[in-house]
Every structure is written in structure tokens, then in C-alpha cells.
């Protein structure tokens, strides 16, 4: 219902329709959905939509959600300025 109007990933504005179409076309995992559509790849690091994407993938593929995290986390897990990463203190709070 209203898949083309339902944004799932807010950061990258990826819709439910795009995600479901991608899963159906490539019968793929959450990780592949992310790489193909950018869903879960935005500023928040997928924190907001990752659980939803896992559910959509599981429901569309008719498989249970796997134990391994399909959408991996990589450091830095918060967007950081180069100064912070370099050990300085000018930072996003």
C-alpha cells in the first residue's frame, strides 16, 4: 500500500517500493539492499531504519531474520569531524 510514497530510509529518502522491488529482482539480503539502494547508508548510520529493512527483507524473501547482523556497523558510528578522529576536541556534541 502506497509503497512509492512510503519513505523507509529517511536519510537517503529510499521508498518501500524501491526496497521491495530490489529484493524481488535480486532476491537479496539487507546488506545488498543497502548497497543497491543506499537505504541504511545515510547520516544516522542506519540506526533508524535497519530493523525495518531487516523485516522487509525477511517478509519479502519468506525467511527468518538471521543471527548475524546483516547491516554491519562501521566506525566511526557517529559522524565525526576529522579533528575528533585525529584526537582533537572540536566536535559534534
Amino acid at each position: 500500500m502506497a509503497g512509492e510514497k512510503t519513505i523507509v530510509c529517511r536519510c537517503e529518502e529510499v521508498t518501500l517500493e524501491t526496497i521491495v522491488d530490489t529484493i524481488e529482482q535480486y532476491s537479496c539480503s539487507s546488506r545488498e539492499v543497502k548497497l543497491r539502494t543506499r537505504a541504511g547508508m545515510g547520516y544516522c548510520g542506519g540506526r533508524t531504519c535497519r530493523n525495518v529493512i531487516d523485516r522487509i527483507v525477511a517478509a519479502t524473501n519468506g525467511e527468518p531474520i538471521k543471527d548475524e547482523l546483516q547491516l554491519s556497523y562501521r566506525s566511526p558510528i557517529r559522524p565525526a569531524t576529522f579533528e575528533v578522529l585525529g584526537g582533537g576536541h572540536e566536535n559534534e556534541s
Binding site: A2, T6, I7, R10, E13, R47, T48, C49, V52
Partner: peptide, 12 residues
């Protein structure tokens, strides 16, 4: 924990 959304048109 974090909240899990239920996306819906217009939720942004």
C-alpha cells in the same frame, strides 16, 4: 534500546 518506526507516507 532504540525505537523501531513503522514508516508511513508523510512520516518525515
Amino acid at each position: 534500546a532504540t525505537e523501531v518506526p513503522t514508516p508511513i507516507p508523510g512520516w518525515t
